[in-house]
Simulated scan of single mutants.
Amino acid sequence: MPIVNLSLQVLPLVPEEKVYPIVDKVIKYIKSTGVNFMVGPMETTMEGELDILLDIVKKAQKICEEEGANRVISIIKLDYRSSGVTMEEKIKNYIDK
């Protein structure tokens, strides 16, 4: 399976003061998986095999639920190319050297 990019934004529907702590737990989980990832101001982008990344999305939903969210809105963007696609190739021209 080719390498894909998947961006995930989770919006747990909880009181405002709980949103960031829950999102922090999701990001901590993503980091623990070992996939290449980049945190942005609105979403976290991951790089890897599609099935692995989708499993991470499922677990992210579960983390939000375990932390008290009865409802979670998730926005997912997927960049798939049969030959694979990396985050580096997409942003290399914009990184300060």
Score class of each variant (00 low, 15 high):
residue 1 M to A: 14
residue 1 M to C: 10
residue 2 P to E: 00
residue 2 P to W: 07
residue 3 I to R: 12
residue 3 I to E: 15
residue 4 V to T: 09
residue 5 N to Q: 15
residue 5 N to I: 14
residue 6 L to Y: 11
residue 6 L to M: 15
residue 7 S to G: 13
residue 7 S to D: 09
residue 7 S to E: 09
residue 7 S to V: 03
residue 8 L to N: 11
residue 9 Q to K: 13
residue 9 Q to H: 06
residue 9 Q to I: 08
residue 9 Q to S: 14
residue 10 V to L: 07
residue 12 P to A: 03
residue 12 P to W: 05
residue 12 P to C: 01
residue 13 L to E: 07
residue 14 V to E: 07
residue 16 E to C: 07
residue 20 Y to P: 01
residue 20 Y to H: 00
residue 20 Y to I: 09
residue 20 Y to S: 03
residue 21 P to E: 02
residue 21 P to T: 01
residue 22 I to W: 05
residue 22 I to T: 06
residue 23 V to W: 02
residue 23 V to N: 05
residue 24 D to T: 01
residue 25 K to Y: 03
residue 25 K to C: 03
residue 25 K to P: 00
residue 25 K to E: 12
residue 26 V to H: 02
residue 27 I to P: 04
residue 27 I to E: 01
residue 28 K to H: 06
residue 28 K to T: 07
residue 29 Y to W: 00
residue 30 I to P: 00
residue 30 I to C: 04
residue 31 K to W: 02
residue 32 S to Q: 00
residue 32 S to K: 02
residue 33 T to L: 05
residue 34 G to M: 01
residue 36 N to K: 09
residue 36 N to P: 00
residue 36 N to I: 07
residue 38 M to P: 00
residue 39 V to Y: 01
residue 39 V to H: 03
residue 39 V to N: 08
residue 39 V to P: 06
residue 40 G to C: 11
residue 41 P to F: 07
residue 41 P to R: 06
residue 41 P to H: 02
residue 42 M to V: 10
residue 42 M to N: 07
residue 42 M to G: 01
residue 42 M to E: 12
residue 45 T to C: 13
residue 45 T to Y: 14
residue 45 T to H: 10
residue 46 M to D: 00
residue 46 M to G: 02
residue 46 M to N: 06
residue 47 E to C: 08
residue 47 E to G: 11
residue 48 G to F: 12
residue 48 G to E: 09
residue 48 G to R: 11
residue 48 G to I: 07
residue 49 E to W: 02
residue 49 E to K: 08
residue 49 E to I: 09
residue 50 L to S: 04
residue 51 D to P: 05
residue 52 I to S: 09
residue 53 L to G: 10
residue 54 L to V: 15
residue 56 I to L: 01
residue 56 I to G: 03
residue 56 I to N: 05
residue 56 I to M: 04
residue 57 V to L: 13
residue 57 V to E: 07
residue 57 V to F: 10
residue 57 V to I: 11
residue 58 K to P: 03
residue 58 K to N: 04
residue 59 K to Q: 10
residue 61 Q to H: 12
residue 62 K to F: 04
residue 63 I to C: 05
residue 63 I to N: 04
residue 63 I to S: 05
residue 64 C to A: 04
residue 66 E to D: 13
residue 68 G to L: 02
residue 68 G to A: 00
residue 69 A to D: 02
residue 69 A to R: 03
residue 69 A to Q: 01
residue 70 N to H: 10
residue 70 N to W: 02
residue 70 N to R: 11
residue 72 V to Q: 08
residue 73 I to P: 05
residue 73 I to G: 02
residue 73 I to W: 00
residue 75 I to C: 04
residue 75 I to K: 13
residue 76 I to F: 05
residue 79 D to V: 10
residue 79 D to R: 08
residue 80 Y to H: 06
residue 80 Y to A: 08
residue 81 R to K: 15
residue 81 R to V: 14
residue 81 R to E: 14
residue 81 R to P: 14
residue 81 R to M: 11
residue 82 S to F: 03
residue 83 S to T: 08
residue 83 S to N: 15
residue 83 S to E: 14
residue 86 T to W: 13
residue 86 T to Y: 11
residue 86 T to H: 12
residue 88 E to H: 12
residue 88 E to L: 10
residue 89 E to K: 12
residue 89 E to F: 13
residue 90 K to W: 13
residue 90 K to Q: 15
residue 90 K to V: 14
residue 91 I to D: 12
residue 93 N to S: 15
residue 93 N to R: 15
residue 94 Y to F: 14
residue 95 I to D: 14
residue 96 D to V: 14
residue 96 D to Q: 15
residue 96 D to G: 10
residue 96 D to H: 13
